[in-house]
Amino acid sequence: MKIAVVFPELLGTYGDGGNALSLAWRGRARGIDVSVEEVALDAPLPDADLYLLGGGEDGPQRLATERLREVGFVDRIAAGAHVFAVCAGLQILGSHYAVEGDDLFPGLGLVPAVTVRGTPRAVGDLAVRVGSRTLVGFENHGGRTSLGEGLGALGEVVRGVGNDGHVDGFSAPRLWATYAHGPVLAQNPWFCDEILETISGKDLTPLVSVADRLYETRVSQIAD
């Protein structure tokens, strides 16, 4: 399984490297051959099964969007690759987003999602009900995202703001996005495994680690 961390120097403000680390560690513990490659801004986009897009500040977010357009990122997803995006990465995948004021900039247009600026800034713990599970994390963004026809949210917000105070992120075939930034896959081992299972097409054996205790503790602190 090839994982590409996209432009970590631009999209990596909040420890987003933790997601690649979690996928690699949990995948390898189940015998999946996982490779992780960091994609530099001036390098060609490598082939990958999963692309990770992290969070970033306003200027770098626009630069990353332009560069992703140049390297044909959308074609890779259309050809069967997966993408997991957080925060700025989520906004980039949509049709338009506002940064540095209220001007709207074109995103990659993979999904019909539009992000405008919202006040106050959403800063704090975020808990999202995803099916029968709970996703826990931390958000820090000034965006309000609305989802167009046919695009489903990742889940309902139990605590925090997410897209709009009601729902968070979006999910579509081969694509997940959330405002829970940073090492969200480290904090939510079940979600990390779900992504690994979707891409590998295999049922994974249970894996006990200290991350389970972290997850249970965070759920009891912010989502119960």
Partner: peptide, 17 residues
């Protein structure tokens, strides 16, 4: 400490809580 331990374990460092 659990966030720290998870980070270290995922980074292949032995962690005790």
């Amino acid at each position: 400490r659990l966030d720290l331990a998870t980070r270290l374990v995922y980074g292949n460092v032995t962690a005790e809580v």
